[in-house]
Design a protein around this nucleic acid. Structure first.
Length: 395
DNA sequence: AAGCCGGGGAC
DNA sequence: GTCCCAGGCTT
């Protein structure tokens, strides 16, 4: 790319933003960030012990933690990580585990495809790589569930390889440091950010540097109200210099959230004190997990959902909600909302006695099991159905 | 390029 | 209530 002849002083083409920090800035950012991180970092179970930041870590721990940390905050992951490593201490034990058992350890964490991907990834490593986790980015990228962020994280944090990473934190920090007014979600924005990340990651202790970037984003350089006064690289931050920290990166566009009304049938066999659970299909939301039979109450629609009380629309399900409220077979026992990122579920919970009417609810294409509430703990259930089970146990 | 996929922490 | 998080896969 030729430099602009009309701006000979600039070190960037005139038609592009300044995407490369100067060498002096890069040196200072690395130095300050390293010093700050070693002094202030949190102690996390997949990291080396405090004060031993350059000590080797188990790449398997990095692998598991990075899968769990995709789109998930550190504080949420910690307890799941401990239980997971306790049950599956190494790549072989994970590879030979039953998928339902892996899902059960993921229960409540969300984005359940990650669990199945991690399981498939472990099996692939055992099969293709003699149970040794690959250390180079390209080999890692070929494994299921590993994209360029996770590949770079495993290579740098787990093996000390020089590899850039860009997650939500790094994207925000680099946007601010370079004052990049781009959409960090867009391909163009991501290209620019990855380019900066590639320049800035050092040869020496790249894992410490990458961890430091994410730590900074999680604790100081937050989306709102960043604590610039405490930031080790505030003097290298162009957004700070331009007084644009609050507008970079640009907030993403908000979306309308559809409301989905569903009815959950807790079908009880009084003789055995067993309850009916059905398995969800192998794809889509909560894939492969088990639930109390649930059916849509009304077609999804968007609406203002600010009311506190559960108000259900006119039912069009086969049994009719009015019937469900009043009959001897069906009894309304509660309702609650469950918010996902792109949907709001409004659940009505009904207890049903096992019989012909309740049998009509079941989808013949879905596997079912009749279990005591206690025994149902052996199955992976989505969060709303964990809640339903607690409702039944409390009765 | 856009949609899909959970749940919760922090405010 | 809001925003968004140690993203990747599918279409």
């Amino acid at each position: 790319m030729p430099r602009s002849a009309s701006h000979p002083a600039r070190d960037q083409p005139a038609d592009e933003p300044a995407t490369k920090p100067t060498e002096a800035h890069v040196r200072e950012i690395r130095t300050q960030l390293d010093r700050w991180y070693r002094a202030h970092r949190r102690d996390l179970p997949w990291r080396p012990p405090p004060g031993q930041d350059d000590a080797p870590v188990d790449p398997y721990h990095v692998l598991v933690s990075e899968f769990m940390l995709q789109q998930t905050q550190v504080s949420t992951v910690i307890s799941y990580f401990h239980r997971f490593i306790h049950s599956f201490p190494d790549i072989r034990s994970l590879a030979k585990a039953d998928e339902q058992e892996v899902l059960r350890h993921w229960q409540g964490l969300g984005y359940y495809r990650r669990a199945r991907m991690l399981h498939a990834c472990a099996r692939e490593i055992v099969k293709q790589h003699e149970s040794v986790i690959p250390s180079d980015v390209d080999t890692l990228l070929a494994l299921p569930g590993i994209g360029r962020y996770t590949a770079g994280a495993i290579a740098s944090l787990g093996f000390g390889r020089r590899a850039p990473i860009v997650d939500g934190n790094v994207a925000r920090i680099l946007s601010r440091i370079q004052c990049l007014d781009v959409d960090p979600q867009s391909p163009a924005g991501l290209r620019a950010i990855w380019a900066v990340a590639s320049e800035i990651v050092p040869e020496k202790s790249p894992g410490v540097f990458n961890s430091a970037m994410m730590e900074l984003g999680a604790t100081l350089c937050t989306p709102k109200s960043p604590r610039c006064a405490d930031c080790p690289v505030s003097h290298q931050c162009r957004a700070r210099e331009m007084n644009r920290v609050d507008s970079i990166p640009r907030p993403r566009a908000k979306r309308v959230v559809p409301v989905v009304e569903r009815i959950i049938y807790c079908i009880h066999d009084a003789r055995s004190d067993h309850w009916c659970l059905e398995q969800r299909p192998p794809t889509g939301r909560w894939a492969g997990m088990w639930q109390f039979p649930s059916r849509e109450l009304i077609a999804s629609h968007t609406q203002n959902h600010t009311h506190k009380t559960i108000q259900f629309s006119q039912a069009n399900d086969p049994l009719d909600a009015k019937h469900a409220r009043n009959s001897r077979v069906f009894k309304l026992i509660g309702g609650f909302d469950h918010a996902l990122t792109h949907r709001l579920y409004r659940f009505m919970v009904v207890r049903a006695l096992r019989g012909r009417a309740s049998q009509a609810i079941l989808d013949p294409d879905r596997p079912t099991k009749w279990l005591s509430l206690d025994d149902s703990r052996s199955l992976p259930l989505p969060r709303p159905h964990l809640r339903v089970r607690e409702m039944l146990l409390a009765r």
